[in-house]
Simulated assay, not measured.
Amino acid sequence: MRVAGIDCGTNSIRLLIADVIEDEDGDVRLLDIAREMRIVRLGQGVDATGNLAPEALERTFAAVDEYAALIGAHGAQHVRFVATSATRDAGNRAEFMDGVRDRLGVEPEVIEGSEEAELSFAGAVSVRPPADGEDILVVDLGGGSTEFVVGNAQGVRGAISINMGCVRYSERFLTDDPPTAEQVAAAEAEANHQLDTVFAALPIQDVDRVVGVAGTITTVTAHVLDLHSYQPEAIDGSELPVGVIEAAASEFLSFSRRRREQLPYMHPGRVDVIAAGSLIYRTILLRVAEATGNRVRTAVASEHDILDGIALGLAGH
């Protein structure tokens, strides 16, 4: 069976077309046919205005047109379109929903953060499932929100979504180029305030492994690995010490926009939000290390995320 999943977030819209393969033991895996990503910045200004900007809708609809053509060309039998943080927050989301429906022929779903977290967990652990007795924290750091989900081999233990993301924090806090020390301190203080809610809701103290997904985290990993281009195969599964990630975040915060533009693995659409994203990620990891008594000293980057979770869900269509 061939399926297609679309994840439309605050910063990017992504497509996965895959064949669902079931082995003799009944285990299901995905064989990628196509993975595409467009930076459309759907959440442009949503934090301030409460609405999706006309130019952001135009960019997103252009990407949906491209994806509809690819889905048709590859003959996907089942399609699911999932929209997340920016669309949840928008007062004019009906205009967005109508535009997607007209172009794609399926009903777009604006999912709640809890479902987003569960899909992210399913995707993130699809290639390397939890070992017996191992608790994993999956962190899906998006443009408008970040999802946290703790789970193990038996399933999800708890999940929460908070309004903390690289686009939201760039627009709200890091407005200078490069950001000032005062702006960085304000962003960190708010991130820690938001994380108080996360750590009260989830059993972070039990976590044995952290898996980070989405563009901020994979770009930070590319920076640490000093890649000459964006190479998913080199990034996927890379395990880095928390201290190294903290140092990389500090570098992004000190770089000017021009310096970030020159990095060979940096997508143009992430140039102005990577500093905020990496600040959020380092703050999360430092808090996790503290909560676990420094038992968790590393984090794994995964190229498998909510898209894989969406596609795997379609396997049971």
Rank of each mutant, 00 (worst) to 15 (best):
M1F: 06
A34W: 01
D135E: 10
G72Q: 12
A311T: 09
F173L: 01
I111N: 01
H78S: 12
S254N: 13
R88N: 04
I13S: 07
E188D: 15
Q231C: 08
P178I: 11
A56D: 02
E134M: 07
R80A: 10
E24R: 15
V28K: 02
Q262I: 00
V46I: 14
I274L: 12
V149D: 04
L30E: 11
G158I: 12
T60A: 13
Y67N: 11
S302F: 08
S170D: 11
D206R: 15
D27T: 12
V296Y: 07
D196S: 14
L202G: 11
I204R: 03
D140C: 04
H267F: 07
F121E: 09
I39K: 07
C166P: 13
R80P: 06
V300P: 11
C8P: 00
L174G: 12
V198C: 12
S254H: 12
Q262R: 13
E22I: 13
E112M: 14
T221Q: 07
G212D: 03
A299Q: 04
A69H: 09
L42W: 14
S278I: 03
F255R: 15
G123V: 05
A275D: 15
E22Y: 01
S278A: 15
H223I: 01
L225Q: 13
H317M: 05
A201Q: 14
N11F: 05
E36I: 03
F81S: 00
Q183K: 01
T175P: 08
A234E: 15
T60M: 06
I310E: 13
F148M: 02
L225D: 14
R258H: 11
S256Q: 07
R157S: 04
A68Q: 09
D19K: 00
D47T: 06
T283Q: 13
V100P: 05
T292V: 09
I71N: 13
L227E: 04
A276I: 02
D206C: 10
F173H: 15
E22F: 06
I33C: 11
V167S: 12
E303N: 06
G123M: 05
I33N: 04
V211G: 11
E190Q: 07
D177T: 03
A94L: 13
G26H: 11
I111P: 03
M266G: 06
V110F: 02
E24I: 10
T218M: 02
E251P: 01
R41K: 14
A187I: 14
A69K: 14
R103E: 07
R258Y: 06
A222R: 03
A247I: 02
D140Y: 08
N152P: 08
S256T: 15
V40P: 02
S238A: 14
D206Y: 12
R209G: 09
A234H: 13
F173Q: 07
P54G: 09
H228G: 07
I21Y: 09
T218R: 02
A34I: 04
I17D: 00
V3F: 00
R295W: 06
M164W: 06
S254G: 13
I284F: 15
G123S: 07
D226G: 11
I111Q: 01
D23A: 08
A34G: 04
R297A: 12
G215T: 10
A185Y: 02
